[in-house]
Design a protein around this nucleic acid. Structure first.
Lengths: 264, 264
DNA sequence: CTGCACCCTCTCCCCGCGGGAGGGTCCAGC
DNA sequence: GCTGGACCCTCCCGCGGGGAGAGGGTGCAG
């Protein structure tokens, strides 16, 4: 039997951290003295403590660590760990994208932004819509787009409408569509009539990680032309992952509904 | 002039976040109405907001973001950014190490640990010592070892003594040494007589990322042999980065001072 | 038996942001 | 001009994974 201090020395964890792990139910001491409350650990618990330590080094939240430890089947456990590793990989990807985007931002070259003011008539399309949180939007998008592809023909590039709330509040209404002559009236995929709007349109080239920069430039243009933005932004996926695996070749048309200001 | 909500739409930042950046002095609104407190931004501030956004995506703390933004010289600024990128790279390295270590931990193969009980006589060595925090220990170590190398001959492998507090409290007394016949009596590098101890000794093979596992196994061995650990651990760097760049070939002897328990 | 190192619980602090309360301000439509 | 509703303000609390310290109880060796 080891006191918490001795156990801390053997595992290179702090006494405080061990107490926290106990409180969280991650690492129950082998014995807890009922009278004094002293925690006593056994040497067999060292590997368990080290597994927790490693998972924490990988930024696995304590609750998820508990889930992993409580999974009896080693195979299912490995799956949970693999999930986390994949999440780390994904985050690494975003980090890389942020680095390149930052480098471009800090080396400000005069970007000539082609913006077109375009009046778009009301259109009826086959659409899938939902209210989602920002973190889920990619997952949701691929599911929704798969449904669209399964049900209808594809006479033109797909598009999406994204509530501004999605970005400013992290959660908002989203709609993806494909133009189609005769959409089904109801169901997950159903006909929607997009209202007529005047759009400020430009084209974003490349992956979507730094699309906010293009949005910013488009927004600047709109402001400088004494217009104001309104309504959900519209994206049209001219060239996307379905067309080529090379993100550098992707082309996304982004359009912001605008209206003329009286005079400020 | 844009209200905070409009500016949030243009930058894909939340209103709350913009207010926080203002409070932190990162992004001062172009104008703040004295009467109402309303913040008004200009379209020219969009790139600045995006730079902050990117830095935050790289987990740069707000205080460091401020430091970067306040650096007028673009070259020095790029240096600060590069520092952060290097830190990210370093962290990525540790993440990779944690992953491999975790995989080994979860695939528990019966490790045959060679532990030797060795009586070590008191020795006089040339040493550098300090009290450091855990995060700085690697940096401190390379500096200290460079000083040792500069001043004295190298008749044997270098070693270090690490207070257990360093690991359990994140901060502790550290001493690195080289055995030498005639150490200088004073100065940064000075003679120290290491006390005689009985050591439980084993050898850790590989990089130091998962050395705590070896420490744990050594600790288990000590506990199972009715001994107790005491005093600062001793490491001897038989093969290290100075000898070969391949971490898999590194060999570190780790020794834990022990004493016999009366009878528990 | 006494001193001292150790252990206990408790509360507060940190970061960066979200959520919500409670209240003021702007502006379009009437 | 008035009113309603969208917008904005400040202030406080929550999260997670600890660190720091207060204030008090325990265990053990001399």
């Amino acid at each position: 039997m080891l006191t918490i201090g001795e156990f801390a020395q053997l595992t290179h964890l702090s006494v405080r951290t061990l107490r926290r792990y106990h409180d969280a139910g991650l690492l129950e001491p082998a014995r807890v003295d009922a009278a004094s409350g002293y925690r006593y650990y056994s040497a067999e618990q060292i590997p368990a403590a080290q597994v927790i330590h490693r998972l924490r080094e990988l930024d696995v939240p304590l609750t998820d660590v508990q889930r992993i430890l409580q999974t009896p089947d080693p195979c299912a456990r490995a799956g949970l760990v693999a999930d986390h590793l994949q999440r780390l990989e994904h985050q690494l990807e975003r980090t890389r994208a942020a680095v390149t985007s930052l480098q471009r931002l800090l080396r400000p070259e005069p970007t000539t932004l082609d913006v077109e003011l375009r009046a778009v008539p009301a259109t009826t399309v086959a659409a899938v819509e939902a209210t989602v949180v920002l973190d889920d939007v990619l997952r949701w998008y691929s599911g929704a787009m798969a449904e669209l592809d399964a049900l209808v023909g594809t006479p033109g590039p797909p598009g999406g409408l994204y509530d501004n709330e999605l970005f400013t509040a992290g959660r908002g209404h989203v709609l993806v569509y494909r133009p189609v002559a005769d959409p089904p009236p109801t169901g997950r995929v159903h006909g929607v009539t997009l209202p007529a709007v005047e759009l400020a349109v430009t084209t974003h080239v490349g992956a979507h990680d730094s699309i906010d920069v293009t949005y910013g430039e488009l927004g600047s243009w709109v402001v400088e032309h004494a217009l104001a933005v309104a309504g959900p932004v519209r994206e049209t996926y001219l060239v996307g992952p379905r067309d080529t695996p090379d993100p550098a070749a992707w082309r996304t048309e982004i359009g912001w509904p605008v209206f003329r200001l009286a005079a400020r």
